[in-house]
């Protein structure tokens, strides 16, 4: 417990002192979404049609791009070795890192998503499902992305490789996340879809950190 709390506080402090790591994914999210009205058409009806997918894909890419730095600096500075030789199970500090990372990068995406949904001409009744789906989906994306980050941490060309590994694993979350919003737009019941997202979250939260810890061990040469 001491190790969990200490890691959590340290991660929050580190992210706080590197505000770019919080702000950049957020800007990326906003910028990518605002490209679509320019690329497709500013016509509200057309935008509303693609809005669920656009906002979700942008959120997914923002989370994925933020993952690359999750372990890299700790690995370069030797902290990762400390973490793996410490008298606590690696999964404990790893979980703390994931929680801190989601709080600082995932949560801001959740908070701005209604604004972007509105800019994409989503009907107001779909904004709450949008926010909920991103709230339930981004932690899964963070955990699954961390598996890829752990496996590529020591490699030079980590960034693009990470995308190749992780994007296929993101597909279920994307389908149900964007699907929840589409269902809401069509006037259907969203509870069931959100429940599936919640189930995916439960699955990734229970097995994901173990896989991340195993991935870090493998990357250290074990």
């Amino acid at each position: 417990m001491r190790a969990f709390r200490a890691t959590l506080m340290r991660e929050l402090l580190l992210l706080w002192r590197n505000p770019a790591e919080i702000i950049n994914p957020l800007f990326f999210f906003v910028m990518v979404v605002s490209l679509f009205p320019l690329a497709i058409s500013p016509e509200p009806k057309q935008l509303a049609l693609v809005a669920p997918g656009v906002v979700w894909v942008a959120a997914l890419l923002a989370v994925m791009l933020s993952m690359d730095g999750l372990f890299r600096r700790d690995q370069e500075s030797g902290v990762l070795d400390q973490l793996l030789t410490a008298p606590v199970l690696p999964v404990i500090p790893v979980s703390a890192k994931l929680l801190a990372h989601w709080l600082m990068t995932g949560l801001p995406l959740v908070l701005v998503s209604p604004l972007l949904g509105h800019m994409m001409q989503l009907p107001t009744l779909a904004l709450e499902p949008l926010m909920l789906s991103i709230l339930l989906g981004t932690p899964s994306l963070t955990v699954v992305g961390a598996i890829g980050a752990a496996l590529t941490v020591g490699l030079n060309r980590g960034g693009i490789l990470l995308a190749v590994l992780v994007l296929p694993l993101y597909i279920p979350v994307l389908i149900f996340g964007a699907g929840a919003v589409t269902t809401a737009v069509q006037g259907g019941p969203v509870d069931g879809v959100l429940a599936v997202l919640g189930a995916l979250l439960a699955l990734t939260l229970s097995l994901g950190p173990l896989a991340v810890a195993a991935g870090l061990k493998i990357s250290s040469g074990n």
Partner: peptide, 10 residues
Amino acid sequence: GHQPGIREEL
């Protein structure tokens, strides 16, 4: 370890 495990931001 070979790297001292020190983060520069802290």
